[in-house]
Amino acid sequence: MNCEESKMLLADYWAQTLSETKELEFDAHIATCDLCRTDAERLGALWTSLSKIPAEEPSPALRTRFYDTLAAYRHGLEAAPRASWKERILALWPRQPAFQMGLSFALLAIGVGIGYTARPGVKPVEPETQEVAALRGEVTNMRQMVALSLLQQQSASERLRGVSYAVQVPSSDTEVLSALLKTVNQDANVNVRLQAVDALHQFGASPVTRTAVAQSIGKQDTPLVQIALIDLLVDLKDKDSAPELMKVSSDEKIDAAVRQHAKWALGKLQ
């Protein structure tokens, strides 16, 4: 063993993770090499002293905050699938007065329409199924309007609500898709961008979505969003994104973790 090789083993020597054979070789070397013995002993003593630095403890408030958050998260998960019809309908009701008024007029118009066609002695203009379809259409339009409006708001929490409305519109809605892509690329808040990436799952069938997602990776400045975008491409099994992922995996300016994740994604998509 030479000095260079012994330096490679010092980290294992201090951590006591050397195999028996290697330790014997190492001991034999430092018995004859003063320089390496000094390194092993002096730096080893410093390595041992590091464990004497007292560990700082978090305040009790951290535990309280964590359990509060966990309880809220569990509550949210448990409540979601068990929501009653009444709660689901109430959840659709917008909070802002302008939207409330718009929805009220829309519902009034629908009510008048249904009342007119259902009045006695008059043959209905449209079959019942068409009325239900029209009603659904109104609700969908309302969701689209609310989603698009909320995504423009100043407040990040309002924009987050906008994203949650966006996932309720049909996947063929190009206006909402375009707004979501804009949010992913330009929103100042990381949480909103991440939520928008999640929402894009619904629009994954569109080639526009896939291309835009692949191109967005290089534009992002946060590794977390970049990784979420790569995960989305893997979930969508988008093999066409391989050239873009190759570019990301070899771009030295991009975070190492992201580059590694892009390589992993390329393996998955093969």
Binding site: K7, M8, L9, L10, A11, L43, L46, A257, R259, Q260
Partner: peptide, 17 residues
Amino acid sequence: LGCEVGTVKVRVFRAMR
């Protein structure tokens, strides 16, 4: 860190130095 184990060990040595 996305590197080889040997690289980590060398970096530990350098960090200690």
